[in-house]
Nucleic acid binder design. Structure first.
Lengths: 207, 207
DNA sequence: GCGCAACCTTGTCAGGTGACAAAGTTGTCC
DNA sequence: GGACAACTTTGTCACCTGACAAGGTTGCGC
């Protein structure tokens, strides 16, 4: 095997773990399987990361960074305030439920984190990061339209994000391979956009 | 060991598995650990259920039945329509986030189900059962007040339940042992009640 | 009381897991 | 070119996993 510095091997291994786990689930992410994914001896994983949990930490951090990057990249072009929110949300939906399965992976890690204080801390940071980003984008959108939000951006962001999270869970639970996404779910997504915009404007959110 | 018919051993094992997994997580639910929990030889598990997955199926079905039972038992007493919905939702919140950890367990199974078609089918049934129950209760509440729901009960139920699910996820992700529940989460719960009632009445849902 | 089916236990298999020690290899700096 | 540190590999340990076969035990029906 080529002689690669650890600083380079780290991201390689994280990427390999991410690929493998995305494909086959977190449970399939044994140190052996990850090493094999990269074509490296198993002990290399331990040399590079020490313990398996340290690898997992790094993987979740990478996942977090990617996710927030995705959200930021979906900043909408034009339209009314409501339209822009809708556009943003649908872009987010597409990138979350797309076939790459990152959303599934994130849910699996969230489940793991419920029993593991170390992982939970990272997930907490992820959650706060996402909420901050959402609140910030919401404020920017409102500013661009000369609107004053009818309640704190953070509260609206939490309302939206929890609803969105519940929707992706529902989607993942009900989806059948090869089938169209459940129309109820998409309907509920529009409803969520409507209530969210309603909270922004302090006005009725009639769909 | 006492000579117990399989029809009796089954629920005993399911209960033992439920206790163990609630306490230590789904991952700790090996056939050996479950057998030990009941004080029985490991092979008894295989004799009774055949395969481990069959045990898991039975556990999830039990969990499902309990959950829907809880929801039905929370039918509120009196008050205005909005108050009754609020009462119901808060009772549901208490029983979901209570210390027994069934909510955590359910999330863990949901995560497992994302990669396992057999489990997924059960979770799908659970989801539909809950949504049906919620829609039914909502209709009954509206009827009792002589109200006409402004949109299909099912759609409102999906809106509420996805939001609720997202909130429990957020709660589980952010909670720190021994700390008060995050005030933002409770605020968001009230907000969810408000938007849900708003959808029922077809009117603005100003908190 | 005898037989048979249902139930229980012991013992074991094959495979997978994280972790590490020891020894080999590479590359860089003097 | 020699020394030393960084990296890699092989090999192995102790443990846990689901599954099952063989044989012992219980209790019900006749």
């Amino acid at each position: 095997m080529a002689h690669v510095p650890a600083s380079e091997r780290r991201p390689q291994l994280v990427q390999a773990a991410l690929d493998l786990m995305t494909r086959e689930g977190v449970a399939a992410g044994s140190t052996r399987a990850i090493a094999a994914e990269l074509g490296v001896a198993q002990a290399t994983v331990h040399y590079t990361f020490g313990t398996k949990k340290d690898l997992y930490r790094a993987v979740v951090e990478q996942l977090t960074a990617e996710f927030i990057g995705h959200v930021r990249a979906s900043y909408p072009g034009d339209g009314s305030f409501g339209e822009q929110v809708g556009t943003l949300v649908h872009a987010l939906w597409e990138s979350s439920t797309g076939e790459d399965g990152r959303c599934v992976l994130l849910s699996e890690f969230a489940a793991l984190a419920m029993r593991d204080p170390d992982l939970q801390e990272i997930m907490r940071a992820l959650q706060h990061g996402i909420e901050g980003t959402a609140a910030e984008m919401l404020t920017a959108l409102a500013d661009a339209h000369g609107l004053q939000l009818a309640m704190p951006a953070r509260e609206i962001a939490v309302h939206f994000l929890t609803g969105f999270d519940g929707l992706t869970d529902r989607y993942l639970a009900l989806r059948a391979p090869g089938e169209q996404p459940d129309p109820d779910t998409l309907r509920a997504l529009d409803l969520l956009v409507a209530t969210t915009v309603g909270l922004c404007l302090g006005a009725p959110a009639r769909p």
